[in-house]
């Protein structure tokens, strides 16, 4: 019995150490994003909203991460349910931005690493800023194909999304870096832009 308590205690300490380490890295990413936007002259339609949204994404991820780490056995895994996070985050975005429609297709079983989920939410924040810039309606669809997550988005005022990159070229640096970090890639189709990235 004593050994079990000791093992649980050690495991709990390991999880806390890991969480603190991860959290500091995530804060570093937030700071880096702010500094990169200055160094690349990325100007946002609404600077304050972008930063607030990133902070809320971080909070939502850690809420879920904390809850999933409280299971009966402490998990070594650092992934979080994509569906739970997206439902929570879209709900949050829609309270201030009703012009976002979203559809989650069969992703109930998909878990994504906390760091990657944060990057995905920051990409979403960037896309939302493009939408505001266009004063447009944004439609997003998230699905899974094999070992990849597909993240499709389209703007109602853009007729051909193959031109999406040219349209926002000057503001693309942060977007590109985040996609590189996700090991993902963009496909520009007429009706939508698709970001695909691998999951475990």
């Amino acid at each position: 019995m004593t050994n079990e308590i000791k093992e649980d205690h050690e495991k709990l300490r390991e999880v806390l150490d890991k969480t603190l380490h991860r959290f500091k890295n995530n804060l570093q990413t937030q700071l880096s994003l702010m500094n990169i936007q200055t160094s690349t002259n990325r100007s946002y339609f609404d600077d304050k909203k972008v930063i607030v949204d990133r902070v809320f994404a971080l909070t939502h991820v850690y809420d879920l991460y904390y809850r999933s780490s409280k299971g009966e056995s402490l998990s070594e895994d650092s992934s979080v349910s994509l569906q739970s996070f997206m439902l929570q985050f879209f709900q949050y975005l829609q309270t201030s931005t009703p012009k976002i429609d979203f559809d989650l297709i069969e992703i109930a079983e998909v878990n994504v690493d906390v760091d990657n989920l944060l990057l995905l939410s920051y990409i979403l924040v960037e896309i939302n800023d493009f939408r505001k810039n266009l004063d447009d309606t944004l439609t997003i669809e998230i699905s899974r194909k094999d070992n990849k997550v597909l993240f499709k988005f389209s703007f109602s005022s853009i007729e051909n999304h193959e031109n999406f990159h040219e349209l926002f070229e000057d503001q693309y640096k942060i977007f590109d870096l985040m996609v590189m970090q996700l090991k993902g890639k963009f496909d520009y189709k007429k009706k939508f832009v698709r970001l695909s990235f691998p999951i475990l």
Partner: peptide
Amino acid sequence: DDKLVSYEIKSILDNN
């Protein structure tokens, strides 16, 4: 290996 962090550090060091 974090692209955002390495890009930021590079920008800081380039500027200095």
